[in-house]
Design a binder for these strands. Structure first.
Lengths: 230, 230
DNA sequence: ACCTGAACACCGTTCAAGT
DNA sequence: ACCTGAACACCGTTCAAGT
C-alpha cells in the first residue's frame, strides 16, 4: 500500500534516503530480502519511484557499498606503514562487522565504486610511502586480498542448524568420517556452539592471519624483494 | 519445447546427467544463466522434471560444487606437509580454473557438502601429520581461507569495458584522482589489457601469496607457536 | 517411477501516463 | 520534477494429474 494517508505528507525521496533505507533493510532482514519491491514498500512508495534516484539494482548495491566503505576511518598521518595498514584494516573490519551482507556484496560488485577506489588508492599509497617498490606493493595487495576489507572467508559455512537430538548422531557420524575436522572443532572452541566452525574467536583469528601477512611483507621488503626474472 | 520428436527416445534423466548439464551450462553461459528453467530446456525436459533428481536449486548448486571439488587430486603420500599442501592447493586451483563460477558458488554455500568436508578433513590431516598442534592448525586453516581452494578474491573487480575512445579520458581522470592505483596498474602489466587489474600474472601472484603464507606457517611451527594466554 | 501442465507468489524493469 | 499503474519477461516451487 504505497498510498499515504490523505494529508500526511511524507518526506520526499532522495538518493541518500533510498540508500540508508536499503542498508537498514539489508541489516535487519538480510540481503536476500532486499528487493526493489520490498525497499519501495519500506519507503511507502511504489517500486518505480526508486528508479528516479537509482538507475537500477546494481547501482543501488554500489551505493550501499559506498555507504559502508565510507565508514572506514581515514588514514592516520605519521605512522609507519605497518601500523597504518593494520589500523586501517581493523577499522574496515569494524565498519563491515555492522553489516553482515557487506563482505558478500563488496565481492560481487562488477565495477569499482569511487569509495572503493579511494580506499584502494590510499592503501597502496601507504605501502609506497613505506618504501615498498611498485612490484612488491602489487604482490602484497594481492596477498592481502579480501582481508584488506577486514574479513576472511568463512572456513566452514554456517553450521547446519539441526535439533539437539539429531546433533549427537551427526556428531558421531562426523567423528568417524572427518576425524581431523572434529578434533580441530573440539579444541578450537570450548563454547560448544556447533560442531564445525562456530565458537571461533574471529577477531583473534583475523589478526593472526593479518599479522602473519604483514610480518611476511616486512621481511620481504627488508630483504629487498624484486620480481623474479623481471 | 520440452516435447521430444515422436519416437526419438531420449536418455532418461538422472542426478548425474542433471549435474553435468548444470556444470556445462554454467561454464558456457555463466552462473546467472543457470536457472531451473534454462537447465530443463537444455535437457529437453519440463522444469519440474528436475525436481525428481534434485530437491531444489540449493541442492543443485551443492551438487555442482561437489562435481568440481571431486576433480581435485587426491593427497600425495610421503611428502612433507609443506609440499603436500602446496600441491593440493595448486591442484584445487587447476580444478576451479575450468569453472569460473565455482569460487563464487563455493563461498555462497550455506552448509558444507561431503566432498568439501573430505577436502577440509584431508588438508587439516596433512598439517597434523606434519606435526602442527591442533591450535596452530586451526589458525593456519583460517589464514589460508579461500586460498585453500586455489583462488584469491579479485583485487579489483573486472575492468569496466569502455570503448577505446572513452578509455583515454577515464585514464586521465583516474591518474588525477587515484595516482597510486594507476602507477601500480601500469607497472604490473605491460600487456595493456585494462586500466585496473587486468593483465596480472594471476598464477604467479597466487603462488606468491600462497608461499608467503606457507613460509609464515613453517616459521611459527618451528618456533613452537602456542595460543596466547591459553 | 518418472514426467507434465497449470498455477502461485515472487523478481527487475519498460512504458505511457498522471499530478 | 517526481510519482504511479499496468504490463512484460522472467524466477523457484507446489500441487494434482497424467503415463
Amino acid at each position: 500500500m504505497p498510498q499515504q494517508a490523505a494529508g500526511a505528507r511524507r518526506a520526499p525521496l532522495n538518493r541518500e534516503r533510498v540508500l540508508r533505507a536499503a542498508v537498514a533493510l539489508a541489516d535487519r532482514a538480510g540481503i536476500d530480502a532486499l528487493s526493489m519491491r520490498n525497499l519501495a514498500q519500506e519507503l511507502d512508495v511504489v517500486p518505480m519511484a526508486l528508479y528516479k534516484h537509482v538507475a537500477n539494482k546494481e547501482e543501488l548495491l554500489d551505493g550501499m557499498v559506498d555507504t559502508v566503505v565510507g565508514e572506514i576511518e581515514p588514514p592516520t598521518a605519521g605512522a609507519d606503514w605497518k601500523s597504518a595498514i593494520r589500523r586501517r584494516v581493523l577499522s574496515a573490519r569494524r565498519a563491515l562487522l555492522g553489516h553482515p551482507w557487506a563482505s558478500r556484496v563488496i565481492e560481487s560488485r562488477t565495477s569499482p565504486t569511487p569509495a572503493v577506489l579511494d580506499y584502494l588508492n590510499s592503501i597502496i599509497g601507504t605501502f609506497r610511502a613505506g618504501g615498498f617498490s611498485v612490484d612488491l606493493t602489487h604482490q602484497v595487495m594481492h596477498a592481502l586480498g579480501s582481508r584488506m576489507w577486514g574479513f576472511t572467508q568463512e572456513l566452514f559455512p554456517a553450521a547446519p542448524s539441526v535439533d539437539p537430538q539429531a546433533q549427537a548422531a551427526t556428531f558421531a557420524a562426523m567423528a568417524a568420517r572427518y576425524p581431523h575436522i572434529l578434533e580441530m572443532a573440539m579444541a578450537g572452541s570450548h563454547r560448544d556452539e556447533s560442531i564445525v566452525g562456530g565458537g571461533c574467536d574471529d577477531q583473534a583469528e583475523f589478526e593472526f592471519a593479518l599479522d602473519l601477512l604483514l610480518d611476511g611483507f616486512e621481511r620481504l621488503h627488508r630483504q629487498g624483494w624484486t620480481l623474479p626474472r623481471a
